[in-house]
Simulated scan of single mutants.
Amino acid sequence: MTNLSSLPAIMLEPLVRAALLEDLGRAGDLTTDAIVAKDHHATTVLAARKAGTVAGLDLAALAFRMIDKDVDMTVHCADGSKVAQGEVIASVTGPARAILTGERTALNFLCHLSGIATATASVVDAVRGHSARIVCTRKTTPGLRAVEKYAVRAGGGSNHRFGLDDAILIKDNHIAIAGGIRPAIERVRRSVGHLVKIEVEVDTLAQLDQALAFAPDAVLLDNMSVEQLRQAVAMVAGRAVTEASGSITLATAPDIAATGVDLISIGWLTHSAPILDIGLDYREADRPV
């Protein structure tokens, strides 16, 4: 995928460090240290067991290099690339102990994030031809939000809020406690700065009509039917960003995109996407990578 910016190493290092420490425990890699000589160098490859979209190579490389700076990882298919079953994604060479010790941590990140990128790409492909963008939500693994949202971008999707502090999203419980859409929006406008965007969640067309009277920047159309979404887009008529949300699947996404909504938000991209199976394979010295 073009124009995919890598995350700074300073954001990735704490995640990888914590994962390695969890694996190394109190005594290090007992198995590898017993079997593999200190001076043994190895050539290995990261290969896709199934077709998919790659994400997480920077974390994988860090996992190896934090064990030993002499491990070298050469990337053949960058993050955002679609790979075929059996395709070599990267080659990893250097001290064999470090490669084997870092293997599981590297693969945990790489398989998980590639799974998110693959799931995202499947939905992006399903709605191709329509203007709707596929976006993720805050339904992320605690501690991994930044990299999971990065993986969504690697799959061709876009990001919703990163947290509670970067935009206003007035949901049903906010409306209930405030006593309605109007007082909720009015309180928000008195509280936040002029650069903070406001989105309002609505469940019905009647609620949408109420919300539009107060000119929100976006409206979240929650669990509406395809016909309701079509009517909602017509009602909004470009006055706000329209976002469809709620139990959206790969099968239903194309019909939802055809209604003309601007965004389709999907929580399972991050909270339930299956991994992309990727393995680390040892190569003999005379066998080409």
Rank of each mutant, 00 (worst) to 15 (best):
N3E: 09
L7H: 10
L7D: 10
M11Q: 14
R17W: 07
R17E: 15
A18N: 11
A19V: 06
L20F: 05
L21S: 14
E22D: 13
D23P: 05
A27K: 13
T31K: 01
T32F: 07
D33L: 13
K38F: 09
T44H: 08
V45Q: 12
A47T: 12
A55E: 03
G56A: 07
L62P: 03
F64S: 04
M66Y: 09
I67D: 04
V71S: 10
D72A: 06
V75G: 06
A78Q: 14
G80D: 02
A84N: 15
E87T: 00
V88G: 09
I89F: 04
S91T: 13
V92D: 01
V92R: 04
P95E: 04
A96C: 00
A96F: 00
I99V: 09
C111V: 03
H112E: 06
V124C: 06
D125N: 05
A126W: 07
S131G: 05
I134R: 05
V135K: 00
T137M: 02
G143R: 04
L144W: 08
K149Q: 15
S158D: 15
L164C: 11
D165W: 11
D166T: 13
A167W: 01
I168N: 02
L169Y: 03
L169D: 06
K171G: 02
N173W: 13
H174Q: 03
H174K: 08
I175Y: 06
A178L: 02
I181H: 05
R190M: 13
G193E: 08
L195W: 01
V196H: 04
V196M: 03
I198M: 00
V200M: 02
E201D: 06
D209P: 00
D209Y: 07
A211V: 11
L212G: 00
A215L: 08
A215V: 00
D217E: 13
L220K: 01
E227G: 12
Q228N: 12
L229C: 12
R230D: 10
A234D: 15
M235Y: 07
M235T: 05
A240T: 07
S245Q: 05
G246T: 10
T252R: 09
A257N: 11
A257V: 01
A258T: 02
A258F: 08
V261G: 07
I264L: 05
H271Y: 12
H271N: 12
S272D: 08
I275L: 14
I275D: 09
I278W: 08
R283H: 15
R287M: 13
